[in-house]
Design a protein around this nucleic acid. Sequence first.
DNA 1: GACAATGTTACAGT
DNA 2: CACTGTAACATTGT
Length: 273
Amino acid sequence: MPELPEVDTVVSDLNEIITGKRIRGLFSIGRKNIKFYDDVSSNLTIKQKIKSVERRGKYILIHLNNNSTIVVHLRMTGQLLYLLQNIGTSQLKHIRAVLNFSDDSKLVFNDTRNFGEISFFQDKKSLTSYLSKLGREPLEIKNDEFVSLFKNKKGNIKANLLRQDLICGIGNIYADESLFLSQIHPQTKCTNLSEGELLSLIRSIKKVLKNAIDLRGTSMRDYLDVNGNSGKYSTTLNVYGRTKIPCKTCGNEIQKIKVAGRGTHFCPNCQQK
DNA sequence: GACAATGTTACAGT
DNA sequence: CACTGTAACATTGT
């Protein structure tokens, strides 16, 4: 699922839909689905109002009126679905947690593979410390900062793009798509990239992410927005999931290899080492 | 049955 | 020490 554009779509929808709602309770199915970093109970969320919803990297931050925050990470298959009071959940086979509101609507956390995570932070200090592991936001970093951050990194460019402690929010789909736009081979060593190539890459990253946000993300298999709708970026993809399909630019077949442990798609003609 | 899947982290090996 | 690859988490679909 969910990389920056998908998480951003969920967050902006949630901000419009649940801001100001009062929480009646947070229920988790199975003990391990909610982690409490501050050794406090989720009872602290009861009767609180939603202050705002924010994104940091691939994390969804649901800020409450008492300064505490519920943090959700969807990992591979998580979905946050907003349901009105009269909507049942029998269709959803992997509900892990439910946030109930006082108007009887609810936010359901459905996650097939159960990799997703809900964490609870009592105050901004502990939240900030938890999020401090994250690197820069790709849509906010200055182009020259990106260049200096990446130009001397060890290893290949794709592995480094996936590192959330350098730049956060890029996942497998948008790494492949950004590298294609800049005609950079995913296995190119960072040290072999010119400043011009890195400059081109950060421009591609911003372009790809913004375009994907405009189209409300990519749905490969599991991703749905809070209203249960698919993202529409899927048809815009140039390389991801297009193995053996002709390149939209040159007609050569898109290749799939393994880089940094992940399936990696590229055009062997447009992207040469 | 084997394998891969949008993510992240821990650990073994080189 | 640094980097790379694999396993692990759990489930589904091809």
